[in-house]
């Protein structure tokens, strides 16, 4: 795809989509959204980027191998579950802390890190699928 319009429009669209995906991920606990949807939006963004600039550019842009990202996500989710073991509560019990930074209460929880893990797995695994198929197209 050598379309000039796509190439010009892709960077701002893609960065907006990735930002939006993170927004959807973080608000997921209280509004419609969450790790699965956020992850898929990010995948869509990366796919568009890949169509515009080629698979290699995407691979460079995300630095890590997509499946490494997925693996990190799976590890993060699992660790979020096991953190409860330290506090002698059953596996996967949600733990919350609310530190106050600059006068604003920020609720942090293992539930959130779990959801971030889900996000990373979806981003990594599905991007890997999409990229490997797109790559074949190039060659």
């Amino acid at each position: 795809m050598k379309s000039l319009i796509l190439r010009t429009a892709a960077p701002p669209i893609v960065s907006l989509m990735v930002l939006f995906s993170i927004f959807v991920l973080l608000r997921g606990h209280n509004e419609p959204g969450g790790g699965f949807i956020g992850g898929l939006i990010a995948v869509a963004a990366l796919s568009i980027y890949g169509i515009a600039f080629g698979v290699e550019t995407v691979r460079r842009a995300i630095v890590f191998h997509p499946l490494a990202i997925a693996g990190a996500g799976l590890l993060l989710s699992t660790l979020s579950g096991f953190l409860s073991a330290i506090f002698h509560v059953p596996f996967m019990t949600g733990l919350w802390i609310t530190p106050v930074v600059l006068g604003v209460e920020i609720p942090l929880s293992t539930v959130m890190s779990f959801d971030i893990g889900v996000y990373l797995v979806v981003v990594g695994a599905v991007t890997s699928i999409a990229l490997s198929l797109e790559e074949r197209e190039d060659s």
Partner: peptide
């Protein structure tokens, strides 16, 4: 502590299920 009930079920109440499911996604990848 979550208002979106669907998301709370996924990441908290039935979190272990979800863990298994993302593992499946990962393996499929």
């Amino acid at each position: 502590h979550g208002a979106n009930v669907v998301n709370v079920i996924i990441v908290d109440f039935r979190g272990t299920d979800t863990l298994g499911e993302i593992a499946v996604v990962m393996i499929a990848g």
